[in-house]
């Protein structure tokens, strides 16, 4: 879920911070610049882990800052593909769900990545899953043709705010930097809605995934044999 990234940068230290040990001042400066920000193709920066290398501070012409060349290691949130993460359901709509980790909430779970034989209940505005049924020989029954006709007590709903386990399928970075001005003056340019710089797509169509309550700690044996 978290990785260490090695980053090299040149950072200025303000003269008022000269009284502080340089290492500490640099750490603060790095955290100020990177914490809680998304680096393209790296991930969401959390905080500095340690400073590997720092040069001598140099004064440049024009300002009184001491400029340091530093190489440091950063704790970065970047789950790898196929990693399983615990997340909370933030919001639900017919297209899927949005999950949140508290510190990061651009995690999407499209309806197509829900377990097989699940559907959206338009009245309750929640997705539900119909667990497969087994006959006496342990053979799996084909799922009902119309899931909306299944009785309420056989449906397993995913409630908002519920903790679920989901598998990371892919992640995507989006550079929101405005490009060079286009030669389109006088033409109404359509504003593209802001996209989040880093988003993660998850799935839960497997055994062991989904709301934590579906897979209790004990009695897991039976569930395993079913699959």
């Amino acid at each position: 879920m978290f990785v260490l990234s090695i980053i090299k940068d040149t950072l200025p230290i303000h003269p008022s911070d000269f009284g502080i040990p340089a290492e500490q001042a640099l750490g603060t400066e790095i955290n100020k610049k990177y914490a809680n920000r998304v680096l393209h193709d790296v991930g969401l920066c959390v905080c500095v882990f340690d400073i590997t290398e720092a040069g001598e501070g140099k004064v440049r012409y024009g300002d009184g800052y001491l400029w340091y060349r530093v190489v440091f290691r950063m704790v970065v949130f970047r789950p790898f593909a196929s990693e399983i993460i615990m997340a909370k359901v933030k919001s639900i709509d017919s297209d899927g769900m949005r999950l949140s980790l508290g510190f990061f909430d651009d995690i999407y779970l499209p309806a197509s990545f829900l377990p097989a034989s699940s559907a959206f209940d338009t009245k309750r505005r929640q997705h539900f899953w119909v667990p497969p049924e087994f006959d006496d020989e342990g053979q799996e029954q084909p799922p009902p043709a119309n899931l909306h006709q299944v009785e309420e007590d056989r449906r397993m709903y995913i409630e908002p705010g519920e903790q679920i386990r989901a598998r990371v399928e892919s992640d995507e970075f989006y550079d929101d930097e405005p490009g060079p001005p286009k030669a389109l003056e006088g033409v109404a340019v359509q504003r593209v809605p802001r996209r989040s710089p880093y988003s993660i797509i998850c799935s839960m169509g497997e055994q062991g995934l989904g709301p934590v309550a579906w897979w209790p700690s004990d009695g897991g044996e039976d569930a395993m044999e079913e699959g």
Binding site: F2, L4, S5, I6
Partner: peptide
Amino acid sequence: MEVLNSRAALLSNYEVLTLLRDL
């Protein structure tokens, strides 16, 4: 800024938690 290695090592949740708590 230059990223020398975007994935130098993996950290466990526990390590991140201790680091943040120290901070």
